[in-house]
């Protein structure tokens, strides 16, 4: 089961990456992780650095992917973003500001996309 969820996540992350590229984003890195956590995608567009959390669900029966993103999760992503910027000073220098986005996917049984939503700038949800 756990392995299945992991696979679903990978599928979703690949789909999200394609989706963002199509929308004109430049993907800097995928699956940046340290022992504290992981950022699924790091992208850039219009001189802005964007950290993207990808959430994938198969079917809507067990809650929406949006339900799975709460303040705690966003806090974790922000912390990871700071870690990333510390480890990559050139990137930090290049982009003065960053934002946190989420891409939420609902897939069908054959991994086809039923719904894909891109939520921008979730920083304000953290308060």
């Amino acid at each position: 089961m756990k392995n299945l969820n992991y696979q679903t996540g990978r599928v979703g992350e690949n789909l999200a990456r394609e989706y963002l590229i199509k929308k004109g984003y430049r993907i800097l890195q995928s699956n940046f992780h340290t022992r504290f956590g992981e950022i699924d995608l790091i992208a850039a567009k219009n001189q802005k650095l964007i950290f993207v959390e990808v959430k994938t669900k198969i079917g809507d029966q067990f809650g929406t992917p949006e339900d799975m993103i709460d303040k705690r999760k966003l806090g974790k992503i922000q912390m990871m973003a700071e870690v990333f910027l510390q480890k990559n000073p050139p990137v930090a220098k290049q982009y003065p500001a960053y934002q946190i986005d989420a891409v939420c996917l609902v897939l069908g049984l054959d991994n086809e996309i039923i719904r894909i939503n891109h939520w921008e700038d979730l920083g304000s949800e953290m308060v």
Binding site: T64, E66, I69, A102, W119, L122, E125
Partner: peptide, 9 residues
């Protein structure tokens, strides 16, 4: 208030 814009919550 029910806003259709913005992250659902």
């Amino acid at each position: 208030n029910l806003a259709t814009k913005g992250f659902p919550g």
